[in-house]
Design a binder for these strands. Structure first.
Length: 571
RNA sequence: CGGGGCGUGGCGCAGCCUGGUUAGCGCGCUUGGUUCGGGACCAAGAGGUCGGGGGUUCAAAUCCCCCCGCCCCGACCA
């Protein structure tokens, strides 16, 4: 490809509406343009990267035995009504009608569509197992699209669905996909972690998220360097503490203290000079319409996904101030677990607490030396606090490491949720009709592109790994008006193309500095710079990532470039 | 949905508070020339319904109201 013909409008300045590096750089370097909130034009450079990402995905999915299909983006409403998700999926789904008044949705995911296909065509155990995937656009009307490609309303996803005669076989495929995903992200040169995850809207029994480690990630994860345990904080389990021996003997008398206008844990801690971890934080949640009190240690945060799961609830939310007063008869900010008219569920972190501070149930007062069991009843101890770095690993006890990550892949073992709802069955060896057991597996293709940038950039621009770079090499003649330089560059360009590389030649009549800036910004991994030293028979090979330069004889330029790429890939 | 911010040539911004001639600046673009190893310089140009609508006023980019778009924070610590 010749740069003079390439539609890659680069910008000197970052767009005003971009916040995170991947968004700024992808726009600046001419990979994407915003069309509207959460909607992006993808320009040729962006398409090149996406195609490379898709190529790796296809190769690995095919190798794993999956087969590609293309399903409509327009989903008939009936299927979603049948699965019960037409309303359950909610406002995130874009719905519309055709001229006949028939309802459709723009597919946010395709369990219904694929299950419909398979239930019609698959009748016997002999047709199973089956793993079908597609790579295409998905639509989700996000509450708040943000961070460029990271959370867009239209995006490209690879979604795969597998079908099995048994739970065991579905599990086998689950791990097959786990391995496949690991290979996919490794091949892309990304630093990632597979973490145990919540199953969320999709449902199913267990799942893993593949997270690309990056500070700007929306997700948090913890992992154990020792035993390999890794989980999303939406899922990570806390170690259940022992009830302290003879704790009753330590109990002191409750003492009521005046705490005028002191509400927040931070304020209480300072005012009473008590560490946050000896204060009870009491929250009122509305769990599927019913109020419950949730107690956690003062220095902990409630992880709402864990809470939702602990109650097997459909919907949970914090109570409003009015609701709190209505259901508890106590003022917000001074809630006491004592004599609460609603049940108190306590997080594991409350178990070891003795003589702690809690609200007094009346304005401007707290209590010291409160003890669960003696002063109030705990309905049940549940694990609902967010696990943080430094806390013990639930598997081996080693302190956990905490990182932020971008979810680029998610695999689920679905079980029979959809096959039962949609009556997708097969006949087994004994002539018995059974529901098909399913799994599903997604990769956010456009998000991978953003995540890759988020993980690989510097002050000069993007630094692509060779595997997904839009071009593997750029040949830069520093002055195209100099015949010797131009001709040498053209020769090397042809040679590199003949070696099968994706190569760009910057044949623009521009100053060298201008070309260097663009090459760095776009992030092409290897630059072959053809300058004045051609007269001495030499050109320069520069590695974008490290800035290392090597002078090589013209004849070796192509082979040395190839070697350089090899080295970059093996790292 | 709640809160905050922004909207001025293609891009990034100033001007607005305190209304007053031709609405500025940098980048980019066009033409000519000089340059040519880290986003050159000189000269001459083109390009704007100041997001939209309504209002106040002799006069509105500027003040008021409504709407639209975009961004950020939040929808959590009782």
């Amino acid at each position: 490809m010749r740069f003079s013909k390439l539609f890659a409008p680069t910008l000197k300045e970052s767009p005003a509406d971009a916040e995170i590096p991947s968004h700024k750089l992808l726009v600046r370097a001419g990979f994407i343009r915003k069309k509207a909130s959460g909607l992006y034009d993808i320009l040729p450079l962006g398409v090149r990267v996406l195609l490379k990402i898709e190529k790796i995905i296809r190769e690995e999915m095919n190798r794993a035995g999956a087969q590609e299909v293309i399903l409509p983006i327009m989903h008939p409403a009936e299927l979603w009504i049948e699965s019960g998700r037409w309303n359950a999926y909610g406002k995130e789904m874009i719905k519309f009608e055709d001229r006949h008044g028939r309802s459709y949705a723009l597919g946010p995911t395709a369990e219904e569509m694929i299950t419909d296909l398979v239930r019609k065509e698959v009748k016997s155990y002999k047709d199973l197992p089956l793993n079908l995937y597609q790579i295409g656009r998905k639509f989700r009307d996000e509450i708040r699209p943000r961070f460029g490609l990271m959370r867009a309303r239209e995006f490209i996803m690879k979604d795969a669905y597998s079908f099995h005669t048994s739970d065991e076989d579905a599990e086998r495929e689950y791990w097959n996909m786990y391995e496949t995903y690991s290979r996919i992200f490794s091949r892309m040169g990304l630093k990632f972690k597979a973490v145990e995850a919540d199953t969320g809207e999709i449902g199913g029994s267990f799942s893993h998220e593949f997270m690309v480690i990056a500070d700007t990630g929306e997700g948090k994860l913890v992992f154990c360097e020792k035993c390999g345990y890794a989980a999303s904080t939406e899922k990570a389990e806390a170690v259940k503490p022992e009830v302290p021996e003879s704790r009753e003997s330590l109990f002191k008398e409750i003492e009521k203290v005046s705490t005028p206008n002191v509400k927040r844990i931070e304020e209480v801690s300072n005012f009473l000079n008590v560490p946050k971890n000896n204060i009870l934080k009491l929250l009122v949640y509305i769990v599927d319409g019913k109020p419950v009190a949730v107690a956690v240690r003062g220095d902990k945060d409630v992880e709402e996904t864990k809470l939702k799961n602990a109650f097997k609830a459909k919907e949970i939310r914090l109570a409003t101030e009015e609701e709190i007063e209505k259901f508890t008869g106590q003022p917000k900010g001074f809630l006491s677990p004592i004599n609460l008219p609603i049940p108190v569920y306590a997080d594991y972190s409350v178990i070891p607490l003795v003589n702690f501070v809690a609200g007094a149930g009346e304005k401007d007062y707290h209590l010291r030396n409160v003890n669960w069991g003696r002063d109030f009843k705990v309905e049940k101890f549940i694990d609902v606090a967010e696990v943080k770095g430094g806390e013990p690993c639930p598997k081996c006890g080693n302190p956990l490491t905490e990182k932020r990550g971008i979810e680029v892949g998610h695999i689920f073992k679905l079980g029979t949720k959809y096959s039962k709802a949609m009556n997708a069955t097969f006949v087994d060896e004994n002539g018995e009709e059974k529901p098909i057991v399913m799994g599903c597996y997604g990769i956010g293709v456009t998000r991978v592109m953003a995540a890759a940038v988020e993980q690989n950039y510097d002050e000069n621009g993007i630094v692509w790994t060779p595997e997904i770079a839009p071009f593997e090499v750029i040949v830069i003649p520093v002055n195209v008006k100099n015949d010797e330089i131009r001709e040498t560059a053209e020769k090397i360009y042809e040679e590199l193309k003949n070696k099968g590389l994706d190569v760009l030649i910057d044949d623009r009549n521009a100053r060298p500095g201008f070309k260097f800036k663009d090459a760095d910004l776009i992030g092409i991994p290897v630059q072959v710079i053809v300058g004045k030293k051609v007269s001495e028979g030499k050109v320069e090979i520069k590695v974008r990532k490290t800035g290392e330069k090597a002078e090589v004889p013209i004849e070796e330029a192509a082979s040395r470039t190839l070697e350089t790429l090899w080295e970059l890939q093996s790292k």
